Simulated scan of single mutants.
Amino acid sequence: MIDIKGPDLCHCLAARRAARHMTRLYDRQLASAGLSTSQFSLLALVETHPGISIPDLAVRMVMERTTLLRAIKPMREQGWLLSEALGAKSALAFTVSETGAAKLREAEPYWKAAQKEFEAQAGRQRAVQLRNELLDLVFAA
C-alpha cells in the first residue's frame, strides 16, 4: 500500500488510475480478438439493446455523444455495427451485424480471461462488490 497523501487523496485521480489499470488488463486480453475494451463494451451493449439510439447509448456508456460517434465510426466501417435512421431528425438506431456478433463470440473467451485475471488480483467477492458499487455510483446520479 502506498502512503496516501497529497494528490493521492484525490478520489478522481484514484478512480482514473484504477480505470487505466483495468483498461490495460482488458485491452491486453482482447487484443487477441482484434478489439479494444471500448469496442467490446460498445458491441456488447448494442447487442443487448438492439435498435439503441446514440443518446441512449451515450448515457449507458457515460460518454459524450461526439466521442461516442468517433468510437462507433470504425466499427461501422468494419461492418460490425449497422445503423438505421430514426425519424426526421437524422437520429440513428444501431444494431450488431452478423459480422459484429461473430466478433463478439470470438472475443468472449478473452473477455472471460480478463474477468478471471482481475478477480484473481482483487478477489472475486471484492471484484463483484467493486463493480456493483461503481455501477450504483454512476447510475444513481
Rank of each mutant, 00 (worst) to 15 (best):
R28A: 13
S97W: 00
E117P: 05
P109I: 06
S36A: 02
A122D: 09
C12I: 15
G6H: 10
L92N: 02
F94D: 00
D27T: 07
A120Y: 11
R126L: 04
D136V: 07
Y26S: 08
L82Q: 10
E108H: 12
T99C: 01
P7E: 13
G100D: 00
D3C: 08
L137N: 12
W111Y: 12
L57K: 04
E119D: 14
Q29R: 06
V128N: 03
T95S: 09
K103V: 01
F40Y: 15
I72H: 01
A44F: 09
P74K: 07
A91H: 06
E119I: 08
A102E: 12
A93V: 04
D56T: 08
S32Y: 08
M75R: 00
K112N: 08
A88G: 05
V59H: 14
F94Y: 12
L104K: 01
L45I: 10
L130E: 06
L86S: 11
A91S: 07
A140K: 15
S83H: 08
H21I: 06
D8E: 10
H49T: 03
S36D: 03
A120W: 14
K73N: 02
L30H: 05
V59K: 12
A44K: 11
P50N: 03
E108K: 13
S32G: 07
G6L: 13
